[in-house]
Design a protein around this nucleic acid. Structure first.
Lengths: 161, 161
DNA sequence: TTCGTATCTACAACCGTTGTAGATAAACAA
DNA sequence: TTGTTTATCTACAACGGTTGTAGATACGAA
């Protein structure tokens, strides 16, 4: 994601107006590695601009996604998460307990459909989601499902969150 | 997923009762490779048992998922999809245009977090989602976003569905 | 400063999913 | 078969994330 100043220019250049609310959201996203939900961005932004509405947050996040400045992703935590990191190729690791999401900077050059297995699909991209438990949740207590599943195909997290 | 008869036994063995509605759902799921949504299962089941309710479909799908007979997955199409195929290790390919989901039977032994990049996560599984256009959507017309993104990290589909 | 228009907030609607309550039917024993 | 217990059923409303609408507000070019 560009800096708040660059985003300001970009918004003006694309015919969008720049408001205090939007700049606040730019600042909130800047350097955020938590892949916040719209609600989380809303909470953070409200600490600066008290009267900002959730709708404005959604609107601005969708604008940023449309401009390619952030990425919206759905990793099965029940709500869309937003990732300001679009410059580096990366994947994601998700805590199945608390829903925490972090970037994984690793290149997997072998992730490619074997010839003939594409079912007629014209594949353009591949995402990998690693699921497990974050350090905090491991420390917090023994999860009943914590046994190692040795990289099998997995289900969603424990029904929601 | 087990056969409808085996599921009937399994439901009884786990203290669940077997009803016409549930057996209908078993039959609907049997051999289904479309990864139907609850709504889709509902539509199909209603052709057999006209008075079945959507709630019952959700209930039964959740029961089956709890028993490990189906897998619920969220691939960013806006609703939970259900996969009766839990026996083989596989991944998924998703059409970014129409939301079609299909299984990909390919083993990727190299999908493993490099040492030190796990961020403290205790990773148990990895899922790969390939995104692109299905044959029908390719044939149906030129998608404005159809240019090859050469396996970069991708976003969700075009905002929903 | 003025004006046109995009954006704002507030509010309600939307949609997928789940909780609740009373009616119904499966399962098992007699 | 009949009765009894108890899970499941349907209908309906609620829930939570997200989006549409309308009138008020403020950006930004002149």
């Amino acid at each position: 994601m560009k800096t708040p100043d660059e985003l300001t220019q970009l918004f003006r250049a694309t015919g969008r107006k720049v408001t205090a609310q939007r700049q606040c959201i730019f600042r909130v996203l800047q350097g955020d590695v938590t892949h916040p939900s719209a609600e989380a961005v809303f909470e953070a932004a409200r600490r600066d601009v008290e009267t900002i509405s959730l709708k404005t947050v959604y609107q601005t996040l969708n604008d940023l996604a449309e401009l390619g400045e952030i990425t919206s992703l759905d990793v099965g935590t029940g709500m869309t998460r937003f990732d300001p990191n679009v410059d580096d190729t990366h994947h994601h690791v998700v805590c199945r307990q608390c829903g925490k999401v972090r970037d994984v900077y690793a290149d997997f050059p072998d992730i490619r459909l074997p010839d003939g297995s594409d079912l007629g699909f014209q594949v353009g991209s591949a995402e990998i989601v690693f699921r497990g438990l974050c350090a905090e949740c491991v420390a917090a207590g023994t999860d009943p499902v914590a046994r190692d599943q040795t990289l099998a195909v997995s289900t969603n997290g424990p029904s929601g969150q």
